[in-house]
Deep mutational scan, measured.
Amino acid sequence: DWREIAKLAEEALKKQQPVTVNGQTFNDPNEIKKLLETAQKAI
């Protein structure tokens, strides 16, 4: 669910920690931002 992904990505950016989505881990803040943008577009 994109809403859940957006929430996870936002928290990861705030806490500056990696986030795992669908078994894929994102460590890079730039990648997390991209993930968040993608999720927000999909909602």
Rank of each mutant, 00 (worst) to 15 (best):
D1A: 05
D1L: 04
D1Q: 06
D1V: 01
D1K: 07
D1E: 06
D1T: 04
D1N: 10
W2A: 07
W2R: 04
W2H: 07
R3P: 15
R3M: 14
R3D: 12
R3S: 15
R3F: 14
R3L: 15
E4H: 04
E4Q: 06
E4G: 03
E4V: 05
E4A: 04
E4C: 02
E4T: 08
E4F: 01
E4S: 03
I5K: 01
I5D: 02
I5M: 06
I5V: 10
I5G: 01
A6S: 07
A6K: 08
A6P: 00
A6E: 10
A6Y: 08
A6V: 14
A6C: 10
K7I: 13
K7G: 09
K7T: 11
K7D: 10
K7M: 13
K7C: 08
K7P: 00
K7A: 09
K7N: 10
L8K: 12
L8E: 07
L8V: 10
L8P: 00
L8Y: 03
L8T: 07
L8M: 12
A9V: 10
A9L: 15
A9C: 13
A9H: 01
A9I: 15
E10L: 09
E10K: 08
E10C: 12
E10P: 00
E10V: 05
E10F: 05
E11V: 06
E11K: 07
E11C: 08
E11W: 00
E11A: 09
E11I: 08
A12K: 01
A12F: 02
A12T: 00
A12Y: 01
A12S: 07
A12W: 00
A12G: 10
L13P: 01
L13K: 03
L13T: 04
L13I: 13
L13W: 00
L13Y: 02
L13G: 03
K14C: 11
K14R: 13
K14L: 13
K14E: 11
K14Q: 15
K14P: 02
K14S: 12
K14F: 05
K14V: 14
K15H: 13
K15V: 10
K15R: 12
K15G: 12
K15F: 08
K15Q: 14
Q16E: 13
Q16G: 15
Q16A: 13
Q16F: 11
Q16R: 13
Q17G: 13
Q17W: 13
Q17N: 09
Q17K: 11
Q17A: 10
P18G: 12
P18S: 10
P18Q: 09
P18F: 04
P18R: 07
V19Y: 00
V19H: 01
V19A: 07
V19D: 02
T20C: 08
T20K: 10
T20S: 11
T20F: 10
T20H: 09
V21E: 01
V21M: 06
V21I: 15
V21A: 07
V21Y: 02
N22L: 12
N22A: 10
N22P: 02
N22R: 10
N22Y: 02
G23E: 07
G23V: 00
G23K: 05
G23M: 04
G23F: 02
G23D: 09
Q24E: 14
Q24L: 14
Q24D: 09
Q24K: 14
Q24G: 07
Q24A: 06
Q24H: 14
Q24N: 11
Q24P: 02
Q24R: 11
T25N: 09
T25V: 15
T25A: 10
T25P: 06
T25K: 10
T25R: 09
T25F: 12
T25Y: 12
F26E: 06
F26W: 09
F26A: 04
F26Y: 14
F26V: 11
F26S: 04
N27A: 06
N27V: 15
N27E: 14
N27I: 13
N27H: 11
N27K: 11
D28Y: 08
D28N: 05
D28G: 07
D28A: 01
D28R: 00
D28H: 03
D28P: 07
D28V: 00
D28F: 03
P29H: 09
P29I: 11
P29K: 08
P29F: 14
P29N: 08
N30Q: 15
N30W: 12
N30P: 07
N30Y: 13
N30G: 14
N30S: 14
N30K: 13
E31H: 05
E31M: 10
E31Q: 11
E31F: 10
E31W: 08
E31V: 10
E31L: 10
I32A: 02
I32Q: 02
I32P: 01
I32N: 02
I32D: 01
I32H: 01
I32L: 09
I32Y: 00
K33E: 11
K33W: 04
K33G: 09
K33R: 15
K33N: 09
K34D: 11
K34H: 12
K34S: 11
L35R: 01
L35N: 00
L35W: 03
L35M: 09
L35P: 01
L35V: 07
L36W: 09
L36F: 08
L36M: 09
L36A: 05
L36Q: 04
L36K: 02
E37H: 04
E37L: 05
E37Y: 00
E37I: 06
E37S: 05
E37P: 00
E37M: 01
T38Q: 14
T38F: 12
T38H: 13
T38L: 15
A39H: 04
A39M: 06
A39R: 00
A39E: 02
A39I: 11
A39G: 03
A39D: 03
A39V: 06
Q40W: 02
Q40H: 11
Q40P: 02
Q40A: 10
Q40G: 07
Q40V: 13
K41T: 11
K41F: 00
K41M: 08
K41I: 13
A42S: 11
A42C: 11
A42H: 15
A42G: 08
A42M: 13
A42T: 09
A42W: 04
A42F: 05
I43Q: 08
I43P: 05
I43N: 06
I43R: 05
I43H: 05
I43E: 07
I43D: 06
